[in-house]
Write a protein that binds this DNA or RNA. Structure first.
Lengths: 142, 142
DNA sequence: ATGATATTGAAAATTATTAGCATGTGGTTT
DNA sequence: AAACCACATGCTAATAATTTTCAATATCAT
């Protein structure tokens, strides 16, 4: 899925929903598409400010919210601190460094048939969190 | 693993680390051991206050922190709001209601050999998050 | 029992996020 | 192209979650 294509889809989705195409909105989505490290709102804000110093943090918060509602980004599970966002909305799993908190996408499939119901819950999908130590933190250990 | 036993282990661990055995500390761990709904710090605080009205919220925050450092509880992945804690530290998975946020432990094993390394990360363990709709929220849907 | 030291409670300080409101801007209409 | 209107934005204040500070207190080894 090319970045250009996703942006076009986003523009269409905005038009369909009566949302306006603003430079701020585009900038936020572009930053998210260009990164695979699951940035926080603050991270996105800092990156955007370099190019467009006029944006406000509140707008970035609002924009990631709408991006999520439209299904173009997902929140990533975390343990405190700030929410992190992921523009990769296809099914994938996460490799998480227990030391520094780095989160890396991993694409693989498990031989597992997800049941339709579990403990009375209607099951939609799942994701695997793999905890470990990233290369950088392994070095620091020794 | 009996509750009594775990408490004894916790007391030993505290002694080994030079930490004092205080009623507050015990109360926090007891509440966590008695619940399987992954309470927030606020939840724990409210439950403790019934028995011991003297405890302060800050102490509960401090205590869950030390409990985690000693490995007696774990933080549960979440998406905003407050951190939730789990005194079940054995390997298990989570069934999460996307509507109300309820988290239920599920015990099952996947036929999957966890590799020792992935993408350069040294792998320790993993947990599966299964997203769905809890029985109560299914009712509200219809 | 006493003293050294860790712990606690209460309040202030931080951090993360949301909301309110006046102004500005896309995009549609004329 | 000018005008209009609804949605967006920026700024600030408000809220929520958590951490820190510090004086007072309690635990535990002696």
């Amino acid at each position: 899925m090319l970045k250009e294509e996703r942006i076009k889809e986003f523009i269409d989705a905005c038009k369909n929903m009566g949302l306006k195409i603003t430079p701020q909105r585009m900038a936020v989505y572009e930053v998210l598409l260009s990164r695979d490290d699951h940035p926080t709102v603050e991270d996105i804000y800092n990156e955007i400010k370099k190019k467009y110093p006029f944006v406000s943090l509140a707008t970035v918060y609002r924009t990631v919210e709408t991006l999520e509602e439209l299904g173009f980004v997902k929140k990533v599970a975390y343990w405190g601190g700030s929410v992190r966002y992921d523009a990769n909305v296809s099914d994938h799993h996460h490799l998480i460094c227990v030391q520094c908190g780095a989160i890396k996408d991993v694409e693989f499939s498990i031989d597992w048939n997800l049941p339709q119901y579990m403990e009375g819950y209607k099951v939609y999908n799942y994701s695997v969190h793999i905890y470990g130590l990233c290369p950088q933190c392994q070095q620091k250990e020794s």
